[in-house]
Computed example of a mutant assay.
Amino acid sequence: MRNQKSSASESQRQRIIKALMIRPHNSHELRKLGCYQAPSRVLELRRLGFNITTERVSIWDDEGFPHDGIALYTLKR
């Protein structure tokens, strides 16, 4: 595996899968993990055979701001 802080696509895909194996994550959480193009990485993972669903949710971020319609990704086993 590449450096944990790498922005390479493969490193981002690995971080996303590792996170989704624990629990569903939203796009805001994945950005905190250094995955700024989560929709693109998730699409690539789907093309590699991973069954990942997307649901639109509303959240409040750490700063107290509301965000409506963000993606919540779930890895189906």
Rank of each mutant, 00 (worst) to 15 (best):
M1N: 11
R2W: 14
R2L: 15
R2K: 15
N3Q: 12
N3E: 10
Q4I: 11
K5Y: 10
K5W: 08
S6D: 10
S7R: 15
A8C: 09
S9W: 06
S9C: 10
S9M: 10
S9L: 09
S9Q: 12
E10W: 10
S11N: 13
Q12N: 12
Q12K: 09
Q12T: 02
Q14G: 05
Q14I: 04
K18F: 06
A19V: 06
L20Q: 02
L20C: 02
M21C: 09
I22Y: 11
R23N: 04
H25K: 08
N26V: 04
S27L: 01
S27I: 00
E29H: 05
R31W: 08
R31Q: 14
L33H: 02
G34Q: 08
G34C: 07
G34S: 06
G34L: 04
C35R: 00
C35T: 03
Y36N: 12
Q37W: 07
Q37T: 09
Q37I: 11
A38E: 00
P39A: 06
P39K: 05
S40E: 13
S40L: 14
S40G: 14
R41K: 05
R41S: 00
L43N: 15
E44L: 09
E44T: 09
E44H: 12
L45D: 00
R46W: 03
L48A: 14
G49L: 04
G49A: 07
G49E: 06
G49P: 00
F50K: 01
N51K: 13
N51L: 14
I52H: 02
T53L: 08
T53R: 09
T53S: 12
E55Q: 14
E55Y: 11
R56E: 11
V57L: 05
V57C: 05
V57R: 00
V57P: 01
S58C: 13
I59A: 01
W60C: 09
E63W: 13
E63I: 12
G64E: 06
G64A: 08
G64T: 05
G64K: 07
F65H: 13
F65R: 13
P66T: 03
P66A: 04
H67D: 07
D68G: 09
D68N: 10
I70E: 03
I70A: 06
I70Q: 05
I70Y: 06
A71L: 03
A71Y: 04
L72A: 06
L72T: 03
Y73I: 02
T74I: 10
T74H: 11
T74L: 11
T74W: 13
L75A: 02
K76V: 09
K76Y: 14
